[in-house]
Design a binder for these strands. Structure first.
Length: 454
DNA sequence: AATCTCCGCAACCGCCGGCAT
DNA sequence: TATGCCGGCGGTTGCGGAGAT
């Protein structure tokens, strides 16, 4: 049973809002901020229930809300996301900057649902677009032919979800979560490395989990049952925990195969993270696997780097002014580099033909204790074809822009080449020993939060 | 011109999860 | 641990405008 309705008070007005009411509400919130909806009406001099005030504000009056016609890109985003996660309007809304869930929901019922029913989702989204997504994000030396690529895509799109796999995934995810966050694991490993000098045998669930993931992935390729709802929930949860922050202005790719970039969110001053999803359309289960495997792959590599004191595979040239904020000093793990810099570009590796696809990772460390400076060499920056962004060699600053085509790109969105732990850092990784078919942007916490779902 | 029908949209409502006590 | 409050979500309703009859 839910709680009693808040709007059963006598004498409260219902129905359309008048201009005077709107003005009162806007004036009050402008002065006092959002929140306290239950008491807001009385304080603001409105004969409305708090819930009505909140809805009026969030769906209509709030500054920055985008109204009017939906662009085709927006419609594609809605249709694709809806095909994957269902009626999770608030989740979908997070991927459409400045659109409200209510508006999206209305637009779906008013137009998109009918169009999709009449045209079919494939026609609505157009096969050429899907193909272009595939072509755009597949790595260059992937040995797949266009034909096999299409077949694989079809298979991915049509595959169901296997409940046993789902449970296995959750089980493993729970274990992993119980063991601590990745950042804390890293921190722990650093400490252990310091104390043992050898640092070669730090236990981690990642190895065994990677193997399990591969098994599950195999299982998913032969769908026999369908628990799509559960997986939709998981995927939806993944999206929910991420805070979308605007769209990349010149991105031509939309929705799940899209870039939701790192520009600041006009409507939300608290946008800390951006979510970037680079992927072909796929079932929710495959997508979840992608995320999980990606995280584990990165964790394994980081673990190897940090615990085994290995030099990064791609040795970066130290940037002199790479600094680390705070006073905790460096760890000195890497002999040939500045002691307080981790060469995250070291996670770059070699591509191994068909068994390796490009993986795009977003490492987000800022709300964890361990701040890890990220260093990228000038050479790497220059090699990367930066879209809609610039790298000033003189000032060594990088601004706005994401390399979508090159396999090498490490950047942060602060315009600095040092990472102080206060902003998202995006890293593209090309080596995937542990997971074969993943391509996705991920955040650690998305997966960790999804792990607790039933 | 009057009436009817359809549709888009704003708003309502019940339920739920998180959180504080 | 139980309870109640708060805010959010998603399904649904109903008003009002536009077009059809």
């Amino acid at each position: 049973m839910g709680r009693a309705p808040c709007c059963n008070g006598q004498g409260l007005k219902k129905g359309s809002w008048t201009t005077q009411e709107d003005q009162k509400l806007v004036a009050y919130i402008t002065q006092n901020g959002e929140g306290g909806w239950r008491t807001l009406p009385q304080k603001a001099g409105l004969l409305r229930c708090g819930k009505s005030c909140r809805l009026r504000w969030t769906n209509y009056l709030k500054p920055g809300i985008k109204r009017g016609n939906f662009s085709h890109e927006e419609e594609e985003t809605i249709v694709r996301l809806h095909s994957v996660i269902g009626n999770k309007w608030s989740t979908i809304a997070k991927q459409l900057p400045r659109r409200t869930d209510n508006e999206i929901k209305n637009h779906w019922h008013a137009r998109l649902r009918r169009l999709v029913a009449e045209m079919g989702i494939d026609h609505f989204l157009t096969g050429t677009n899907i193909e272009s997504h595939v072509a755009e994000y597949d790595i260059e030396n992937n040995a797949e032919t266009e034909e096999s690529r299409k077949k694989k895509l079809k298979a991915i799109e049509s595959e169901g979800s296997v409940s046993t796999s789902f449970h296995l995934l959750n089980e493993e995810a729970s274990k992993f979560k119980a063991s601590g966050t990745p950042a804390s694991l890293i921190a722990q490993q650093i400490e252990e490395s310091k104390s043992t000098e050898e640092g070669s045998s730090v236990s981690s669930p990642t190895t065994i989990t990677t193997n399990l993931l591969n098994m599950v992935a195999t299982n998913l390729n032969s769908p026999t049952s369908n628990s799509l709802g559960s997986n939709k929930t998981i995927f939806s949860k993944s999206l929910e925990v991420s805070t979308t922050s605007g769209s990349n202005a010149n991105s031509t790719v939309s929705e799940l195969g899209a870039i939701i970039g790192n520009s600041s969110d006009v409507g939300s001053p608290h946008s800390e993270y951006s979510v970037q999803v680079v992927s072909t359309p796929a079932s929710s289960s495959a997508r979840l696997l992608n995320k999980m495997a990606s995280k584990f792959a990165l964790m394994n590599r980081l673990k190897a780097m940090l615990c085994d004191k290995k030099q990064p595979i791609v040795s970066g040239t130290s940037i002199d002014d790479c600094t680390r904020s705070g006073s905790d000093g460096g760890t000195g793990l890497f002999e040939d580099s500045k002691p307080d810099c981790f060469h995250f570009d070291g996670v770059l590796g070699t591509c191994r033909g068909e068994t390796c696809n490009q993986l795009d990772l977003a490492i987000e460390l800022d709300h964890h204790d361990q701040a890890l400076p990220v260093e990228v060499t000038d050479d790497q920056r220059e090699r990367a074809k930066i879209k809609d962004g610039t790298f000033d060699k003189e000032s060594r600053s990088f601004s706005n822009g994401i390399d979508l085509e090159e396999q090498v790109s490490v950047l942060n969105n602060t315009g600095s080449n040092s990472y102080d732990g206060s902003s998202p850092v995006e890293v593209m990784v090309t080596d995937l020993e542990a997971a074969n078919n993943w391509r996705d942007y991920i955040y650690f916490d998305e997966f960790l939060d999804a792990a607790s779902l039933d």
